[in-house]
Every structure is written in C-alpha cells, then in structure tokens.
Design a binder for these strands. Structure first.
Lengths: 195, 195
DNA sequence: TAGTAGCGATACCGATGGTAGCGCAATTGG
DNA sequence: CCAATTGCGCTACCATCGGTATCGCTACTA
C-alpha cells in the first residue's frame, strides 16, 4: 500500500516534466523517420530517457502515441457564435493540427494499429474522439450520428490526403471542404434530391 | 537471359492459379486477424503455399497487399449517363468494396505502411489511385485537383469510419455522403458563401 | 527425353515491441 | 541529517516478423 503522505504527492523520484519531453521527442522522431521508423528505442533516445521508462508510463506504443496526440490536440476551440463559424473553425483547427510535423503520420499510424487491436481502438475512440464528439454535439445541437459523420469526413479526408501525398492539404482544398460541409450540414434546406 | 520461347511462356512450373488463391487467403487472413496479425507466414499457410513463393512473386508485404487490392477493386464501373449518377455509382461502388471482409483493413494497413515507405506510397498512388483518378477526370470532365479532392473525401471518410468503428459505413450515411458530394461538385452554382 | 523455371522446405538474419531484474538517485517526512 | 520510498537508467533478454539464401525436386515445354 502507498503511505499516502498528507501533502498528496508520495516520496520518490520526480514524475513531472518527462511527459512533455517524451511527447516532443515522439513527434520529432515520427516526423523524421515515419511511424514505423519511430521505434520505442529511438523515441527513448531522442527524449534522453530509458526505454523502460516509456513502458513504465505507457502500456504500449499505441497508448504512447495516442496520449501524445491528445496532448497535441488539446481542447477544441469553439466560440459558439454560429454553427457555420463553429464548423469552419473546427475544421481549420483540425487541419492545422494534422499539418504539424509528425502529427499526421502519428495519427494515421496509431489509427491503423487500432484496426488490428480492439483495445487500442477503444482508447482512441474514448480518449481522442469522444471529447470532440460531445463538444461538437452540444455546440452544434446536432444528433450524434450526424456529428460522427462530420468527424469522419473531416478527419478522414485530411488523413487520406496526408497519407497519399505525404504533405498536408493546401488551404484552398480545406476551404472547399468546409464549404461543402456547410452546404450539407448548415444550409440544409432538406434533401434536394430524394430517392 | 530467358530463352524466350516462341509460344511466349517459358518452360517450368505452372504460374497460373496461385495469384487468385493467395489473394483470397490474404483477405481472409486480414479479415480474421487484422492487418498486423496477417503475417506473411500466416498468409502463406492460409494459401497452402510456401512463404518463399510469396516473396518470389511480390517484393514485399505492401506490394502483395496492394496487388490484392487492385485485383479486388478492378475497373471502376461508370456508365457516363450523367455526372450525378457517375459520382453516386462510384461512391457506392467504393463503399461496397471497402465493406468486403478484409478489404478495409488491408487498405488502411498498406496505406499507413506507405506513410513510412515512399516506395510503397509510389506503388499505391500509381497503381491503385491513378487509374481511378484518370477515369473519373475523363468521365466527369473535372480538373484533376477537384477529382483528387473527391477521392480524398470519399475514400478517407469510408476508411475513417471503418477504422474507428471496425464496421463499414451504414447505407444511410453513404447516401448522405453522396448527397453532400453532389451538392458541392455537381449542383455547384458557384460559391454560395464568399469570404 | 532433356532442359528449364518455379515451387516447397528449412534455416537463418536484423530489427522491433515488450519484459525482468538490478543498483541507484531523488524526493519527502521525521 | 537520516531513513524510507518511489521511480529512473541500464543491461540483458525473449518472441515475433519481414525478408533472404540455399537446396532438392517437380511440372512443364521443346
């Protein structure tokens, strides 16, 4: 059992400051060597940290990358002025984050690792997607499945471009993407072409 | 040098029929064990073939998967009646293919492998994307960058849904995706909201 | 029948994700 | 200052995977 000192923090070695260093080293390594090239050994070396330290703090490579992405993305900045502006801001914000060095590759990499690993997919969905899903649902006042589709379209498109070309999406295409989303999910005068 | 017999095929063991068996075994294995779980050993075993045979026919795992996907997708069925119907048919066709067992996971897996391997990305882009890019460009009469964006949106969205949920996109969402694409790329009465 | 190209099997290599155990250093409470 | 505790670095290690080399053999063609 832990003695649970009154001052909260138990005695022992420092546990602050390492996360930030590791996150930075992770993105840097992924940016330079790609997702597969960013081995745990290399990330540890880049962070000036022992590999065992990584595994003492994160249960797997996927968990580390996911945590790194959560840290990088942070909270979604929404002003709540209008639905159009919120969607526009959210997409531009996501595009800018994914365009940061290493972020797109890390995202896509952990994403596919999750396809073979339900546990990792659970982590991804719960800790990375759900917070934004809830924030958007509440701000936009849309049903959850509609917001989910918006997220799929936005993130999927940005990642696919990143993966196929190796470079982030140019601003003109981001603008077109936003325009398209607004037509469908904001203007929305009902289905124009029924079936 | 190869003797180059007049009848075309040089002497030796049969080389027909193996590809189809391997492709089927590949998708089956990916479907059952995920992309990472589908090792070359297991694919070979599932196909009843030696691993050396795989490497004699495909230079890498990524190349095998890509070839398998090319074989699965085949030519894009376009009637050329109207742009709306062509886009709609193309998206539904892609959604149906990606929904087939193993196809979505294989696609996403080789996609991310490509992010760390420019040579594989070249293969992917040239042999899997370019044919559809050209076909759509000619049929739709759209500039290449616009078609590229349509492909990013379609494939990216379908793969993202598949990756996050583990299941293919339901028909209602595919319909909404198509409707959105048509509003943006067919109706297109010019930008409705300037900047 | 003879020659040839491809197949199966085995053994092997380097790299990678992940683990175990040890000594030690940093922090806190007394 | 001292002692207890906790986490860190280091080394060694394991199983697995992508990929290669080699060899005997077999199915095909001329």
């Amino acid at each position: 059992m832990t003695p649970a000192t009154p001052s909260g923090r138990p005695p022992g070695r420092p546990r602050a400051g390492i996360d930030a260093v590791v996150f930075a080293a992770t993105l840097r390594t992924v940016h330079e060597l790609g997702y597969a090239g960013a081995t745990m050994d290399r990330i540890a070396a880049a962070a000036g940290v022992a590999k065992t330290t990584l595994y003492r703090r994160w249960p797997s490579k996927g968990a580390l990358i996911t945590d790194c992405l959560i840290d990088t993305f942070g909270p979604l900045p929404l002003k709540g002025v209008s639905r159009a502006e919120d969607i526009s801001a959210a997409v531009r914000w996501g595009a800018a984050r994914i365009a940061e060095p290493g972020v797109g590759a890390a995202f896509a990499g952990v994403f596919v690792d999750g396809m073979s690993d339900p546990a990792l997919r659970e982590i991804l969905s719960k800790w990375l997607q759900d917070p934004y899903l809830r924030a958007l649902r509440d701000t936009l006042g849309e049903p959850e499945d509609r917001v989910l589709l918006i997220i799929d379209i936005t993130v999927g498109t940005l990642l696919h471009r990143m993966g196929m070309t190796g470079a982030p999406m140019v601003d003109a295409d981001v603008t077109a993407l936003i325009e398209m989303l607004l037509r469908q999910f904001v203007d929305d005068a009902g289905p124009k072409r029924g079936r």
